[in-house]
């Protein structure tokens, strides 16, 4: 649990941070809340020679909650939970964030770190897929926007280039019906399976539905087919069963200490069923 030697940098601007990444190349890693990277360094599974801490960059903080919602990368999960504007505009964020680990972790863990790390066990990536969010990346070539749904390529491999920094996430004000449902063995564990669901309704029918899943494949899973299965229905049992079946066609869980594949597929179905019911009750 003793990390290898590294140099520590604390730039005060994104440009300076990008400059450090350019200077040190693949020997440098950015650290936000540090809840993924620091344990990896202590296990010596990661040994960056240069650690670029983003805590000193004021521009990465701040939440805008209008019709378009924008959250700075260094906003902590606790800040997200406490933000009144977000609670009104996109309550799914707080519901999901409250299910991330414990208060100590949420006080340090950031939105940007959680979505940029590319860990399929993290909760916010699936949520961003569900919200159809875009990520703002800033690098030597300037600023670009990438759709969350095109961001996750493989475990810990994303569309972010090595010299880019994820600076913000943004998305439109979501539909009213929402739920983030998660099964975990204990506080601080990754999900056995978790489901993010957004449902928009008019006149007792679903007009829009979005479904994404956490930790049931090597990347977060957006299941377009599951959402489609709900649209134009009244979320009765057969529609939910169709959505679950569609979702199960999109996931690919692996066996670990949380259980065998068959169990995880079953739980994913139960969790999604519950998430749809809760989202529909709020739609």
């Amino acid at each position: 649990m003793i990390p290898a030697r590294f140099d520590y940098h604390r730039p005060d601007s994104v440009a300076a941070a990008v400059g450090l990444l350019q200077q040190h190349g693949d020997e440098a890693r950015v650290v936000a809340g540090g809840h993924s990277l620091i344990p990896m360094m202590k296990l010596r599974m990661a040994a960056p020679a240069h650690l670029v801490d983003l805590q000193g960059i004021a521009a990465l903080r701040g939440i805008e909650a209008g019709e378009r919602i924008r959250i700075g990368a260094m906003v902590t999960q606790s800040e997200m939970i406490a933000h009144a504007g977000l609670a009104e505009a996109a309550p799914i964020l707080a519901e999901a964030a409250r299910q991330i680990a414990d208060p100590q972790v949420r006080n340090l863990g950031t939105v940007g770190g959680n979505v940029a790390n590319g860990d399929p066990g993290n909760d916010l990536p699936a949520l961003m897929l569900c919200l159809d969010a875009t990520f703002t990346l800033e690098g030597p070539e300037g600023v670009r926007e990438v759709a969350a749904r095109g961001f996750y390529e493989a475990p810990y491999v994303t569309a972010r280039e090595e010299e880019e920094i994820l600076t913000a996430v943004g998305f439109d004000r979501p539909a009213r019906g929402f739920a983030y449902e998660k099964q975990k063995r204990k506080i601080g564990d990754y999900a056995t399976a978790a489901a993010a669901v957004l449902i928009g309704a008019e006149g007792g029918r679903v007009v829009s539905a979005s479904v994404a899943m956490t930790n049931v494949a090597d990347v977060p899973v957006f299941s377009a087919a599951a959402g489609e299965a709900l649209v134009s229905t009244d979320c009765a049992a057969d529609a939910v069963a169709a959505a679950v079946a569609a979702m199960q066609g999109d996931i690919d869980p692996v066996e670990d200490n949380r259980g065998p594949v068959e169990f995880k597929r079953h739980v994913a179905g139960v969790i999604l069923t519950r998430a749809i019911a809760r989202a529909w009750s709020r739609a």
């Binding site: 099964q183 169990f263 739980v267």
Partner: peptide
């Protein structure tokens, strides 16, 4: 008696 064993 963790989740998956109870499920099994």
């Amino acid at each position: 008696h963790d989740h998956w064993r109870i499920w099994r």
